[in-house]
């Protein structure tokens, strides 16, 4: 079974092609380019370089969120267009679970964290043992301080932060949780290639939907501790 995986959920964009969990090729860019202009040419070049014509693909996977509002819609539109034209099933991936896959092989707790701005993060928590992820916390939007409290409940385990909010959190924690580190730069952001085995597992488990059914998974931001509006009425 051949899969194309796309991610444009944050500043980086990537594409990967895999066959039965084996990674055939991947492409990644984090150059601040507009995903709407780069994602599809990237996927096309990758398929060409892997000698996999679009017609040989069996399913399409995409990160559906959380992430950038615009980025998620670009990935979604790209996948929907191809899936509709080819009548292919779509595999929705959690951006955070996909991010945790960067660190498969690390034994300990993996905490993917994306900057949701205004001192909020999109995060989740996984325990990784022998290359297998076990989810400890659902995808959620919480404050950086709430994340610290969550991490503090696991003082004895090794913990690693990954994602575009990792350094933000690491540097914002006033007293740093014990046994905490940050993923290295080359593993810090989403990589479609790292999600190959996750997408393959989901494809085998039948966790796919149609092009009509796949939708972005926006996480509702909690009302931040600070007020959004200045205490002054409009038009005054």
């Amino acid at each position: 079974m051949k899969l194309l995986i796309l991610d444009s959920s944050s500043k980086a964009a990537s594409a990967a092609v895999c066959e039965d969990g084996h990674l055939l090729g991947e492409s990644y860019t984090n150059a601040g380019k507009t995903h709407s202009a780069t994602l599809l040419p990237m996927a096309e070049a990758l398929l060409h370089n892997c000698s996999v014509p679009l017609g040989e693909l069996d399913a399409l996977a995409v990160t559906v969120g959380p992430g950038s509002f615009t980025g998620l819609r670009i990935g979604m539109a790209a996948i929907k267009g191809m899936a509709l034209a080819r009548d292919l099933p779509c595999i929705p991936l959690s951006t955070l679970e996909g991010l945790a896959c960067n660190l498969l092989g690390f034994d300990g707790l993996i905490c993917p964290v994306l900057d949701a701005r205004v001192s909020q993060v999109y995060t989740a928590l996984f325990r990784c043992q022998n290359g297998t992820l076990t989810r400890l916390a659902e995808d959620c939007a919480i404050s950086i301080q709430e994340l610290k409290q969550l991490l503090d409940t696991y003082p004895d385990e090794r913990k690693i932060l990954v994602g575009d909010g990792a350094n933000l959190c690491y540097n914002s924690f006033n007293s740093r949780p014990e046994n905490l580190s940050v993923a290295p730069e080359h593993l810090l952001y989403q990589h479609a290639g790292a999600m190959a085995s996750l997408a393959w597992q989901k494809a085998r488990a039948g966790e796919n939907v149609s092009a009509d059914e796949i939708v972005p998974a926006y996480l509702r931001l909690p009302q931040a501790e600070r007020e959004l509006k200045l205490k002054m009425q409009k038009g005054e």
């Binding site: 500043k11 601040g32 507009t34 950038s68 509002f69 926006y218 931001l221 959004l228």
Partner: peptide, 18 residues
Amino acid sequence: VESFDGLYSTGFFDYLDM
């Protein structure tokens, strides 16, 4: 714009990085 969610869906946060 009435809420953080409303602000998010204007794409405002994405434009800050563009």
